[in-house]
């Protein structure tokens, strides 16, 4: 879901960057001075782990693949504010070192995957009191919402200038359709990893261990 250079209208890219900077600034402000030293290696390993997990696209049918975004997993382990920072570091390295996602679209990619993905994942788990069902729903919703935002950005770009973006008639159903399926993979992987970590290393949950799922 990494937006390349030249796809979005510059005004949309700029607006996205401004909102993303606002979201990241808020996250930095909220967690500044609140991270305990012994949790830093966990967060660094989580960031690196999510980077390599994002390299592994899995087939979702129809010649399409998807990969873990990881916002929900980062959220479950480190909490929403730290997750936003973790996701942003991944996206910055992907863009600057590997050319994955355009530099002019970095703001939009951060907005979609780090800010919207994290906030939506967190909302999902908060509404179901951090249970595994909540994490499952939050993970699926994080992908769906990030894809919805990307589809809207494509549609707005196209509406401003038809040489940018993709018309809403194509972008909205295609992006939401593919990512509704990709989101199932995200939800399954997130819950599997959270369940495993609960068993083998419950102390890893910086933001409090998720509750067991109720039947």
């Amino acid at each position: 879901m990494h937006i390349p250079d030249g796809l979005m209208h510059p005004a949309v890219a700029a607006a996205g960057a401004v909102i993303a900077i606002g979201g990241i600034a808020l996250a930095l402000k909220r967690i500044n001075g609140k991270i305990s030293e012994d949790k830093i290696p966990t967060m660094a390993l989580l960031s690196g782990g999510l980077f390599i997990a994002q390299m592994l696209n899995f087939p979702v049918g129809g010649g399409t693949t998807g990969h873990l975004i990881g916002a929900a997993l980062a959220c479950a382990i480190a909490g929403p504010m730290a997750a936003m920072i973790i996701m942003t570091t991944i996206l910055v390295i992907q863009c600057l070192l590997f050319g994955d996602g355009g530099i002019t679209a970095l703001g939009l990619n951060v907005l979609n995957m780090a800010v919207i993905g994290t906030v939506v994942a967190w909302s999902g788990s908060v509404f179901s009191q951090k249970s595994k069902i909540g994490i499952l729903i939050g993970a699926w919703l994080s992908v769906f919402a990030a894809a919805g935002a990307c589809a809207a950005e494509l549609a707005i770009s196209n509406a401003i200038n038809p040489s940018y973006g993709i018309t809403a008639k194509i972008s909205v159903p295609a992006m939401l359709g593919y990512h509704a399926i990709i989101g199932i993979g995200e939800a399954a992987i997130t819950v599997a990893v959270v369940s495993y970590l609960q068993k083998v290393s419950p102390k890893i949950f910086i933001n409090g261990k998720p509750k067991e799922a109720k039947a």
Partner: peptide, 19 residues
């Protein structure tokens, strides 16, 4: 991936990278 296939469906190709 999902976005690349959507772009393909719409007949949009990846532009030149700015970086």
């Amino acid at each position: 991936d999902g976005l690349e296939v959507t772009m393909e469906h719409a007949g949009v190709s990846e532009g030149e990278s700015a970086y």
